[in-house]
Amino acid sequence: MTTVATRPFSVCVYCGSRHGSDPAFTEAARTLGRLIAERGWRLVYGGGRVGLMGEVADAALAAGGSVLGVIPQRLEAREVGHTGLTELVVVPTMHARKQAMAEAADAFIALPGGLGTLEELFEVWTWRHLGYHDQPIGLLNVGGFYDLLLGFLQQTEASGFVDAGQQALLQVQADPQALLSQIAAASVISTRREDFSRI
């Protein structure tokens, strides 16, 4: 599995700063954080203590994992910057946040979330399609949360705006363990890392 320098394999997780309406979302975030730590991997995420963000970080920490959080100054109060992390980096802008998270990651996973989660997922997916990186991208489809989105993406393919190869870049699973196993397998052939400051 490809890593950079001596740091552990790192998974960037995008997720909501709210818990959402289904307790399964919270349980999935906790399970994912724990499993990342149990694999000896590092969690990279948005640095907040609230919502699913806080749940995935707390679970990874409780399992003895290493957690890097990256949060913009403007959101540190709103998202309640997590002070118990292995490392919390405060950056000036959202662009700096996304760049720092991407540069620290060997793979990307999206949990349920809102506008920010969707924007981050589609951005890193677009970067992969354009060849700026070759790290795997996973979608944890908890309780069918993303079913309608995935259906819409099929419509975009049928309408000629997305092709099957682009769709295949996104690995979708409902089970956290299965998704992490897919990510691990895909990471074996991931070799290229981009300077995300140039994107």
Rank of each mutant, 00 (worst) to 15 (best):
S21C: 05
V56Y: 04
Q182I: 06
V89G: 10
R198G: 01
H19S: 14
M101E: 00
A63L: 08
A158N: 12
G113H: 06
E38K: 11
A164E: 13
V56Q: 06
F161N: 04
A102S: 15
T117Q: 07
A186R: 12
F25D: 08
I137Q: 00
T126M: 06
A185L: 11
R128C: 06
A174N: 08
E194W: 14
G46S: 12
G165T: 00
H133D: 05
A185P: 07
E87Y: 05
G131R: 06
R42K: 10
L115C: 06
A178H: 07
Q173V: 00
A60C: 15
I199H: 10
V56A: 06
D163M: 00
T93V: 06
R42C: 10
P92G: 02
I36K: 05
Q177N: 11
A57D: 06
A96F: 02
E76N: 12
R78N: 14
V4S: 07
L170N: 00
Q167I: 04
T31L: 13
M101T: 01
G84F: 05
H19A: 13
A110P: 03
T191G: 15
P176T: 03
E27T: 14
V162F: 00
R74L: 13
G143S: 11
A174V: 07
D22I: 08
A77V: 15
P72V: 03
H95Y: 12
F9N: 12
S197Y: 14
V67I: 09
E87F: 05
F145S: 08
Y146M: 08
E194Y: 14
P23N: 10
Q155D: 07
G84W: 07
G116D: 08
V89H: 12
W127H: 09
E76W: 13
C15G: 12
H133N: 07
F145V: 07
D163G: 02
G113K: 06
C15V: 09
Q177T: 10
A29C: 12
H129F: 00
M1S: 15
G160I: 08
R7E: 10
G16N: 05
D58A: 14
R192Y: 13
L115S: 12
T156H: 03
G143Y: 03
G114A: 08
R97P: 02
G46T: 07
F161Y: 05
R193N: 10
R74A: 15
L111T: 04
G47A: 12
R78L: 15
T191Q: 15
L61G: 02
P176H: 05
V44S: 08
S187E: 06
D106C: 11
L130D: 01
Q182S: 13
Q154K: 00
V91D: 05
G65K: 02
G138N: 03
H19R: 15
T2S: 15
G16R: 11
W125F: 00
S187V: 09
I183P: 02
A57Y: 10
G40L: 09
P23M: 13
G47S: 08
